[in-house]
């Protein structure tokens, strides 16, 4: 029972059809969540008593940061599945996850920097979280660049899976060490607002936005997966049928 489900996941035509049906309601849902969450967060929450209105960027910054870290694990798990079970779909999912994850990490850095200007008075601060995010960005870019460097794409995926797994073992160590490094050098003038409590009226739209960005991430992965599936399976019968039907 469980295994037939697992085998279905490995079948490109099934995954293509299934993701198509899933996206049909997931895409509108994601759009709705994003609109509701951002309008609620940006327009209907009270301003922060210290930061005024500038804090509202957390409704983009925090969800994007959370998802970009989770995305690395998604990529590594997909890589592990493709290494162990030689599953083509997992393979493609991993390679699609790398640029998407890199994009989200970059967005997190940019929004963090925009937030930093009014809050800290400077675009860039070597804060523990920012530094960790930069390292994460380079981990993503490394996987992506390694994939591009191989001509043989089947081997490229394997190499990337190994690298992603090594990165996964390392991420906790990197985060821990960067935290420790920051505590060592922390300048007194800059204090991160984390740890302070957040009012429910600000928290609920934030949670909603996190869910929305997760949904967006799933949509992006599925869309990328479908495009890559069509490309890599372009010689098979089911793809040609699919194209004929369109």
């Amino acid at each position: 029972m469980a295994w037939t489900w697992f085998h279905r996941l490995g079948s490109p035509p099934w995954i293509y059809g299934f993701s198509g049906r899933l996206l049909r309601f997931l895409l509108p849902l994601t759009l709705m969540l994003l609109v509701v969450g951002s309008v609620w967060g940006l327009a209907f929450t009270p301003p922060d008593f210290r930061q005024g209105n500038s804090y509202r960027i957390i409704y983009i910054h925090v969800p994007v940061s959370v998802v970009s870290l989770a995305g690395y694990y998604v990529m590594a798990i997909a890589g592990a599945v493709s290494l162990i079970w030689r599953m083509k779909v997992a393979d493609i999912a991993m390679r699609v996850a790398a640029p998407i994850g890199a994009g989200l990490t970059f967005l997190a850095l940019v929004t963090g920097s925009i937030w930093g200007k009014p809050t800290w008075g400077t675009w860039w601060v070597w804060d523990a979280r920012i530094t960790s995010m930069v390292v994460l960005l380079f981990l993503y870019l490394g996987v992506y660049a390694l994939y591009e460097a191989y001509d043989n794409k089947a081997l490229a995926s394997k190499a990337c899976a190994i690298l992603a797994l090594v990165g996964t073992v390392n991420i906790p160590i990197i985060y821990k060490s960067v935290d420790w490094w920051y505590s060592l050098h922390q300048p007194a003038s800059i204090k991160f607002t984390g740890g302070t409590t957040i009012d429910p009226s600000m928290l609920y739209p934030l949670l909603l936005m996190i869910v929305a960005v997760y949904a967006l991430y799933v949509c992006l992965i599925l869309l990328g997966l479908r495009a890559a599936l069509l490309e890599s399976e372009s010689k098979t019968k089911w793809v040609q049928q699919e194209v004929m039907e369109q």
């Binding site: 060490s177 960067v178 490094w181």
Partner: peptide, 19 residues
Amino acid sequence: LLSLLLLPLEVPVLILGAG
């Protein structure tokens, strides 16, 4: 490519070593 792959992974060593 090698430096792009390795340097992020080697961050903890640098931090701890210099620390």
